[in-house]
Design a protein around this nucleic acid. Structure first.
Length: 570
RNA sequence: CGGGAAGUGGCUCAGUUUGGUAGAGCACUCGCUUUGGGAGCGAGGGGACGCAGGUUCAAAUCCUGUCUUCCCGACCA
């Protein structure tokens, strides 16, 4: 369905200056181009141009999901507390859940996601193995009371999302549904013109077995992702790696010296100590005390590394892991926060692999205001356990192909989860199999942040003049810029010829040429067709492509062919 | 929640240090001119300075409180 418009009667309030509230390109440009406006922090309205882009993305997603057999529904945004208590998430989800009461005092939330609702629907209506498998999806505004909304619609409290849910008889069937969504997602993001990476991810609040994030690569991305040229990808928490032994780590002093106490009054952070002792952070052992359900433990990582709590949890074999309080640190080490070290500590030690090869290292002395030099692992202390504990670093080696890993930043636009029975079990979404046995439905869920995707696309496609839309999601595919008044009837003719086949914006405003050129660039319409001086001289239209700046002078009858080639790839 | 910055016509900002009831550019209205890169000239309309309280003869300006917004961090599918 094409939707062509005349500029003079279409609501596009463009702005000449950057709005004060915006910091990043996509946020500035969406406001300047008249796509969105802010109502409150993290709450935005979509104006015609912005909504049109969202609807185009939506259409692509709908096509690809229908192609894998998923069925579109729409669920309620308002959800009763009881439903969330069944899944246990009324408590678990925390303050991010937007809660409210009706006049009778009954409690509700505005849906941040719809696992509970959809599982209820399926639990109530599916009884037999004959009715499975199938998938449902919807487009809807989601609500999350983000601690800090950011970057316009990039991280909003109310945002437009597509969420799908698959229902299968078996785990194997669920993997199949998962793969179908995974493949559909690849097509969707490719069609939207995005440069993206797929990474292994943690399942977080949603729960479940495993998951992938679809990340649009961008320097403003809020999450770091680890990628390899071989196709391996993971977020930093999930990334595995093998370590390169750098000779410089060992060269410093190969001969093991005797431990020496050093007075370091009031110096507790790695930064302070490295400055004081004039040694690089690589020579330090960072000793972190954690509290777990099995009691207090110590984790050792090199001074320049960051701990990966997911790995530590797995190493210790615990569910709960939190940083110890100053009192607990005193209990574990006999010294205050900032002076912990591996020697003489009273709790089990879990050491990162890198620690084992360190020579004459420095760490806390477990005595207030003292550190210890010349610590040699193995000789001076022996960890209960050792293995990888730190977060991946750029330059670590890929677990699959051993090339060096790169760390990039990404905007999460899609996330797929294999849920298993996370919701079907507590909410009793069961079916009866061939043998008459009752079984739990195996579920998957799959989200795409539609409004965020629009912003992410702008982050990847813009220049100093404005947006450069990928043609598939551009609000208009081409704009007729009518400059000379004498060209009006010709512009009208061109518009009439093209408007059924393409989304055409006809800039028929009584504005100066500069205004029209600037607006066309700002809004980022892929093809500009200019009727001005040149047209009056020899009847040829100046066709300019937004992405390359390339110009062609064409007769009106030649234009349809060019648009077909450029916009439809035919 | 911790740290930082900011709220002055529709928009972007100046004025606050050194109190004396407000200004620019853009936008808007009317007229004339102009028509290939956010037009020119002329004439107009529009704000009492986020809100509340206080100091003062006098507050956009000083003090106190409060609300809102943005940025960094913590946190979070």
């Amino acid at each position: 369905m094409r939707d062509s418009r005349r500029f003079s009667s279409y609501f596009i309030p463009t702005l000449k200056e950057d709005p004060r509230e915006a910091e990043i390109p996509s946020h500035k440009l969406m406001i300047r181009a008249g796509m969105i406006r802010r109502l409150a922090s993290g709450v935005y309205e979509f104006l015609p141009l912005g909504w049109k882009v969202v609807r185009k993305i939506e259409a692509i997603i709908r096509e690809e999901l229908n192609a894998i057999g998923a069925q579109e529904i729409i669920m309620s945004a308002l959800q009763p507390k009881e439903l969330w208590e069944e899944s246990g998430r009324w408590e678990l989800y925390g303050p991010e859940l937007m809660r409210l009461k009706d006049r009778g005092g009954r409690e509700f939330c505005l849906g941040p996601t719809h696992e509970e609702v959809v599982t209820r629907i399926v639990a109530e209506n599916i009884k037999s193995y004959r009715q499975l498998p199938f998938s449902l999806y919807q487009f809807q505004m989601k609500f999350r009371d983000e601690i800090r909304p950011r970057f316009g619609i990039m991280r909003a409290r109310e945002f437009y999302m597509k969420d799908s849910y698959s229902f299968d008889l078996t785990e194997e069937g669920c993997r199949n549904s998962y793969d179908k969504h995974y493949e559909a997602y690849k097509k969707i993001f490719t069609r939207c013109g995005l440069d993206y990476a797929i990474v292994e991810a943690d399942t977080g609040n949603i729960g479940g077995e495993y998951s992938h994030e679809f990340m649009v690569l961008s320097s403003i991305g809020e999450e770091a992702v680890v990628v390899c040229s071989c196709g391996y990808g993971a977020n930093t928490e999930m990334a595995s790696y093998s370590i390169v032994e750098k000779s410089s780590d060992l060269e410093e002093s190969s001969e093991e010296k005797e431990p020496v106490e050093v007075n370091t009054p009031g110096l507790s952070s790695i930064e302070e100590i490295t400055g004081f002792m004039k040694m690089p952070a690589e020579r330090f052992i960072k000793t972190l005390i954690y509290k777990t359900e099995k009691g207090l433990i110590a984790a050792l990582i090199r001074g320049d590394a960051e701990l990966n709590e997911r790995l530590l949890k797995a190493a210790v074999g615990v569910e709960d892991l939190t940083m110890a309080s100053p009192e607990e640190i005193q209990e574990a080490t006999g010294a205050p926060l900032g002076f912990s070290g591996p020697l003489g500590i009273k709790v089990p030690i879990y050491a990162d692999t890198e620690i084992l090869s360190m020579k004459n290292a420095v760490s806390g002395a477990n005595i207030k205001d003292y550190h210890l030099k010349n610590i040699n692992p193995g000789r001076d202390f022996t960890p209960e356990w050792s293995g990888n504990l730190r977060l991946v670093r750029a330059g670590d080696l890929c677990p699959e192909c051993s090339s060096e890993l790169k760390i990039l930043r990404g905007i999460e636009v899609g996330h797929t989860f294999l849920l298993g029975n996370r919701y079907s079990a507590p909410m009793q979404a069961n079916y009866t199999d061939e043998k008459g046995d009752e079984k739990e439905i195996v579920m998957g869920c799959y989200g795409i942040g539609v409004s965020r995707l629009a912003a992410a696309a702008i982050e990847q496609h813009h220049d100093e003049y404005g947006i450069i839309w990928p043609t598939a999601i551009a609000p208009f595919e081409a704009v007729i810029i009518q400059i000379a008044d004498d060209a009006e009837s010709a512009a009208a003719g061109l518009y009439a010829d093209l408007k059924e086949e393409y989304d055409i914006l006809w800039d028929d405003r009584k504005e100066s040429p500069g205004v029209k050129f600037k607006d066309a660039q700002l809004i980022g319409i892929p093809v500009q067709m200019i009727l001005g001086k040149q047209f009056l001289k020899d009847g040829r239209v100046e066709v300019v492509f937004r992405s390359t700046g390339e110009k062609q002078y064409l007769l009106p009858e030649e234009i349809a062919g060019i648009l077909k080639k450029h916009l439809r790839g035919k």
